[in-house]
Computed example of a mutant assay.
Amino acid sequence: MDSPEKPTRLSGEEARAGATPHMTRYILPISLTLIIVIFAIMVFR
């Protein structure tokens, strides 16, 4: 165990502890578009 006086330094990659794929920039607009289309279909039926 580290001593309380010595702070632990982590890099950004170590702190995230995983990969950060850039899928959100595609998933968010696609899902938002689908929701708007579904709601439009429901309203105009």
Results as ranks from 00 to 15, higher is better:
E14K: 00
L10S: 01
L32W: 02
A15I: 05
I35V: 03
A19V: 06
D2P: 01
I41G: 15
T24D: 08
I41S: 14
I41A: 15
I30N: 00
I27Y: 15
S31T: 14
T33N: 01
I36F: 06
G12Q: 01
M1C: 07
P7A: 02
R45N: 12
Y26R: 11
P7M: 00
F44N: 09
T8A: 00
I36R: 08
E5L: 14
F44C: 11
F39M: 07
V37Q: 10
Y26N: 10
V43Y: 10
M23N: 12
I35R: 04
L28A: 12
T8S: 04
V37S: 10
V37L: 13
A19C: 00
D2I: 06
T24Y: 07
P29T: 08
T33I: 06
I27R: 15
E13D: 06
R9Q: 05
L10P: 00
I35K: 02
F44R: 13
F39A: 09
L32V: 05
S31G: 13
T33S: 05
G12I: 02
M1P: 07
S3T: 03
G12D: 07
A40V: 12
T24R: 06
I36H: 03
R45M: 14
Y26F: 15
V43A: 13
A15R: 08
D2K: 09
F44H: 06
T24N: 07
E14P: 00
S31C: 14
I36P: 01
I38E: 07
A19S: 00
F39Y: 06
I27P: 15
P29N: 12
I27D: 14
S3W: 00
S3N: 04
D2R: 06
H22R: 13
I35Y: 02
I38K: 08
S11G: 06
G18Y: 12
L32K: 02
P29Q: 09
L10R: 06
G18M: 09
A15C: 04
P29H: 08
F44K: 12
D2Y: 08
M1R: 09
A19P: 02
G18W: 15
R45H: 12
E5I: 15
S11P: 01
E13S: 04
E13V: 01
V37G: 11
I36E: 03
V37I: 11
A17L: 13
M1H: 09
R9F: 08
H22G: 05
D2N: 10
M23P: 08
I36T: 11
M1F: 05
E5Y: 13
R25Q: 10
M42K: 14
T33D: 05
A17Q: 15
S3M: 04
A17F: 11
Y26D: 12
H22Y: 06
G18F: 14
K6T: 09
G12W: 04
